[in-house]
Every structure is written in C-alpha cells, then in structure tokens.
Design a binder for these strands. Structure first.
Lengths: 141, 141
DNA sequence: TATTGTTATACTCTATAACTATA
DNA sequence: TATAGTTATAGAGTATAACAATA
C-alpha cells in the first residue's frame, strides 16, 4: 500500500510533530522504571532550581493555567517528590520544594536524560545538535 | 521573577516541544475561520491524495489506533467533509473520500498552510528551512 | 480590586478490550 | 484465524468559570 503523503513532507510543522513524538517515545522508554514524563521532569527541574516558587509562578513558566497545575502538583505530592510548604511572605500561596526523595530522584534522572539526549543527538549522524537547537529556538521565538 | 531553567535550555526535547507548540498555535490562528487542526488538515490531505483508502490504513498512516480514528471520521463526516463509501473490494471496510465540500475546503486550506509555513520559515532569519527539515527527519528516523 | 489555590465541569486525544461482520 | 469498524470505558491533559481566602 504505497501511501501518497502529498505536500505533508514539505511542511515544517509535519516534521516537527514527528520528531517530537519520536523524542517523547525515546524519553518514555528511557525513564520507564521511574514512571516520569518529560513534563514532570521539567517541573521537578524548575522546582529544584527555584525552591520556594509558587504554583502560579510555576504554571506561568510552563505555560499552563494554574488550575491545571493543581492536579500535576497533587500527583507529585502524592508520590512524595514535592512538598507544598506555607509561603512565609504570602499566606495565599505555597512555597514549593523538592522533598529529599524528589531531590534524589532528580539526581538520578539528570544523567539518564543526558544519555537520552546523546542517543537522540547520535541520530543526527555527525551534524551538530547545537545547530538544531539554534534553529528550533528561532522557531519558538 | 527571574526563573532559573537549569539544564532545560540545553535539551533538544525541550526546544522541540516549544517549537512545536509555537507552530501549532500559529497554525490554529491562521485557520481560525475554518476551525481545523493540523491533525485534521493532515487527514484531509491523506484522503484527498489516496481516495478509497480504508479507515484502518488511514489510522496506520497517522500512527493511531483504528478505534481512535472512528470519532475523528465521525467528526469530519458530520461536517460534510468526508464520506464513508462502501468498499467495492472488501465489505468489512469503507472507501474514504472527500466530499465536494471537503475538496473545496482543502483547496482553500492548502495555500493558507503554505502562507503559514512561509511565516514560520521567516522566523529562521535567512536560514534554509530545508536544512531544519533535514535535521528533523533524521531525529524522527 | 486583584491574585492564589481550588473545585466543578467539559472537551480532546489517546488507549485497551470486547463485540460483529466479514475475509 | 485474522482483519475492519465499532462501542464502552478509562486516563491523561487541557481549559473556563466560579469560589473563599488573602493581598
């Protein structure tokens, strides 16, 4: 069954989507034993690097509604990776922190993510990954 | 509020995701009057270029389960863009076709999508979009 | 008045499992 | 036995609108 893809292979958006799916799948396979998604990894990284930030600030950084962040945090808190501490400055908000377990997990994940990235970069067959990142950065604006 | 993104900006997956969201958003803005998603556009293109293909073949081409394709087709059929004809060769399957309205819509969409692509390519500031496509193709494998 | 976290609700996308009718 | 389309069901992920507490 020879499928005709017409103009799709000429479209940047088409290849962007396919590459993103491929990278997502490799990430999920790599981290299978930790049951963590790229999005959850990103959130652990952001909390780890900005301890004390609020849920709203985190939601803004990730680009989702703060109502969406509630269940994301519920999930990570239930797994004992993140803690919602009372903010000393503002009684409306939480100061988010990684728990000891969250820090330990993040320390394990980071080298795995580097390996995953190296494996992806190898697909470029010698081309500089920094080159691709530069082009993507321009697209993202 | 200076956010520290730690290692995220070094990760291909991170930029891939951001670029994909940016392109998706531009597509949706461009096609707002037609209420069409990139995925739906791709399906119209595939049916238009391969009239008579079955739902299962279409699902395989797009990379989703055939059960997922059912509601996608229900939607496009309800909008009068696609028709499920009985397959002459196999009474289990449909032969999918664009309706006259579907063909007319696709003909309107294609130049819009080209414009959208050109707008995205302009963000590359002189860099060849074909270069980016080549790199993405390698990533997608 | 505006913001923070929350809930209720809904919609999309996706999958698995089981069913039927055909092959 | 295997495949095509369907249904029922479930789980992410997302959003909007409204609310109480606090700023």
């Amino acid at each position: 069954m020879e499928m005709d893809f017409d103009l799709l292979p000429e479209l940047l958006g088409y290849h962007l989507r396919r590459a993103q799916v491929a990278v997502f799948n490799d990430f999920m396979r790599s981290m299978a034993e930790f049951q963590i998604t790229p999005g959850q990894f990103g959130i652990l990284v952001l909390i780890g690097a900005n301890e004390g930030l609020s849920q709203s600030a985190l939601a803004r950084a990730v680009g989702v509604e703060r109502s969406t962040m509630v269940s994301v945090m519920d999930n990570l808190e239930r797994r004992g990776l993140v803690a919602r501490r009372p903010s000393p400055a503002d009684r409306r908000s939480y100061a988010l922190e990684l728990t000891a377990r969250g820090r330990a997990l993040l320390a394990e994940l980071k080298p795995r993510v580097r390996e995953h990235e190296a494996r992806i970069a190898r697909r470029l067959g010698g081309r500089d990954p920094a080159e691709l990142i530069e082009l993507l950065r321009r697209i993202a604006g």
